[in-house]
């Protein structure tokens, strides 16, 4: 560094990100008729729920929380979901991918097959059925190159689609969420947060999280370059060796496509230290769903994915 800097508003970058997120949450609630918060039980949606509680304190949350349940969750994440929703005093709506399968709207991938992509149909149905016109998500622009392109308020047409070539201009902090019936916006208050910002904030606020984010011993197998937890949704093939390792999860997705990382980090401080020096991205390390093609995320987003 060549100069000493005066922080302009006597705040650090986490304060700036936090206030910005609170501002977005309030704007969308004020401008849209029926907002909802998408909650996966992962760290980003945990931060989002925490911020929402702050934005409207001491009032109750002025919107419900929606969980798209693939039926392939980690138990620890479902436990956390119920705990977090109760602490926030929020109303929980659960939309099940199994119901979408039972209605014959998507093909059944079988017990062990990936339900990741099917979630989009369940999500769009839930948005339609409940007439939601705004959905808060915990997506961050540092996660993926398609997300890096997305507006904070991202317009979705009547089919739930994102058109990256026709995004609305988004000037200053004048977030504009007006839509016609059937259309909706996705709102991403954590857009400018990085993985490290999220962990530093969780540390600063001493937040509760699902236990699988912290290092623990687990039976795992190595598949497609990832460590997968052996359990109800991952059965070892005959040629796969089950080993017991100290692991933790960097992201939380479906049990059958979210890889664990080898780690001894079992405190927030240790995790922050680990994330600060990581040389593989969060998705690269742990998400099988993005590995198949160059534009996997863009393609899913176009269809209406989170």
């Amino acid at each position: 560094m060549t100069t000493t800097l005066q922080t302009p508003h006597a705040t650090d970058h986490l304060d700036v990100l936090e206030s910005h997120a609170l501002f977005i949450l309030r704007e969308v609630v004020a401008e849209c008729e029926r907002p909802v918060l998408l909650f996966s039980g992962g760290k980003d949606s945990a931060v989002l729920l925490h911020l929402a509680a702050k934005a409207f304190a001491p009032q109750q949350l002025p919107f419900p929380v929606l969980h798209i349940d693939t039926g392939q969750n980690f138990d620890e994440v479902l436990d956390f979901r119920d705990r977090a929703v109760e602490v926030a005093g929020a109303r929980l709506i659960v939309a099940k991918v199994q119901d979408t399968i039972d209605q014959g709207k998507v093909a059944d991938p079988g017990l062990l097959g990936s339900r990741n992509r099917l979630q989009t149909v369940t999500l769009l149905d839930a948005i339609n059925d409940n007439k939601f016109d705004a959905a808060f998500g915990g997506a961050r622009r540092d996660e993926d190159k398609a997300r890096a392109k997305e507006r904070i308020l991202s317009f979705r047409d009547a089919f739930g689609q994102w058109d990256p070539r026709q995004q609305r201009p988004e000037l200053w902090q004048l977030y504009q969420g007006k839509v016609n019936p059937g259309e909706h916006v996705r709102a991403f208050p954590l857009s400018d947060w990085t993985e490290l910002d999220v962990w530093q904030y969780i540390g600063r606020e001493k937040m509760d999280l699902p236990s699988i984010y912290f290092a623990h011993e687990r039976d795992v197998i190595s598949r497609d370059g990832m460590w997968l937890a052996v359990g109800a949704f991952v059965e070892p093939n005959p040629d796969e060796e089950v080993v017991r390792k100290m692991v933790r999860f960097r992201t939380v997705g479906d049990a059958n496509c979210t890889g664990a990382v080898i780690s001894n980090a079992n405190t927030l401080d240790a995790i922050i230290e680990e994330v600060a020096i990581a040389n593989v991205s969060e998705r690269g390390a742990t998400r099988g769903d993005d590995k198949f093609s160059e534009t996997a995320m863009e393609d899913r987003k176009r269809e209406g994915y989170f």
Partner: peptide, 29 residues
């Protein structure tokens, strides 16, 4: 930064990409 399929095919930036960088005392957006 040109992360969209169309951008890579056409070799042109279509929409803003946001990227983050940090130095010891500063976060850049």
């Amino acid at each position: 930064t040109d992360g969209l399929r169309a951008e890579r095919e056409q070799g042109i930036t279509i929409d803003v990409a946001y990227r983050y960088a940090t130095t010891p005392t500063r976060k850049f957006i």
